[in-house]
């Protein structure tokens, strides 16, 4: 393997490590929320700095690679994609941290089990974890056959999000005293929806890298 290929491989390996870390953050966020596990939430907050450090390193290494090796074709697409992928993973990491802080929130006591079930939060987490894990496999295996399937899950996320707003609307009409907690729950669910958007962005970047196709914005 040539020197420049080793450099590219190292870049890809950093993104792989970052991706595994963020996936683990999301899985822990799910556990922390569902079981109101404050210790696990603390762990998420503590590891957030590692996610940020990965983003800074990958940005710097990508800049250096472009400056030193003038990549073209698939190499250029890979480097451009990795910059965007690391930024997107960092945003997902931020949302996981936000979910962890929601677990600590004293203003918002534990939601009734029945409401959690109606909001379908567990399913939402499951979809997001599968989107993030499947897109990781697509990058590592350089195979975009699953891209359509992963992107279609974003529609499931949107449907659960819309349903959650209706559920909370009803719940808060009946329980106006819970308005503060209700608003915070909307913000929490909004974070999950945004993670879904970002997972879709990750798939779009992988398709750009491997197939040289632009999927974003419905390819206006």
């Amino acid at each position: 393997m040539k020197h420049k290929e080793n450099e590219l491989q190292a870049l890809k390996e950093d993104v792989t490590q970052m991706w595994k870390l963020v996936l683990s953050q999301l899985e822990k966020a799910q556990q922390a929320f569902l079981y109101q596990d404050a210790k696990m939430a603390e762990e998420i907050v503590g590891r957030e700095k590692r996610v940020d450090a990965f983003e800074l390193k990958i940005d710097c290494d990508c800049e250096n690679y472009i400056a030193l090796y003038n990549p073209v074709a698939i190499d250029l697409r890979l480097v451009l994609s990795l910059i965007k992928i690391s930024n997107t993973l960092e945003r997902i990491g931020d949302f996981c941290e936000g979910i962890a802080y929601h677990v600590f929130d004293k203003d918002c006591p534990t939601l009734e089990r029945k409401i959690v079930e109606e909001l379908q939060i567990e399913s939402l987490f499951d979809i997001l974890v599968s989107m993030l894990a499947d897109s990781f496999v697509a990058l590592v295996s350089e195979n975009t056959d699953t891209s359509e399937k992963i992107l279609s899950k974003e529609r499931d996320v949107d449907a659960i999000y819309r349903n959650a707003i209706d559920v909370l609307d009803n719940y808060l009409h009946q329980n106006p005293a819970a308005i503060r907690c209700g608003l915070k729950t909307v913000l929490f669910i909004r974070k999950l929806k945004r993670i879904g958007d970002h997972c879709a962005n990750l798939v779009e970047e992988i398709v750009f890298y491997i197939d040289a196709k632009v999927l974003k914005h419905g390819n206006i």
Binding site: K2, V72, A73, I74, D75, L76, R77, A212
Partner: peptide
């Protein structure tokens, strides 16, 4: 230079 159609071209321009 962004999306060559032939693998030989890609191999050449990417070194």
């Amino acid at each position: 230079f962004l999306n060559p159609k032939k693998v030989e071209t890609q191999n050449y321009i990417t070194g």
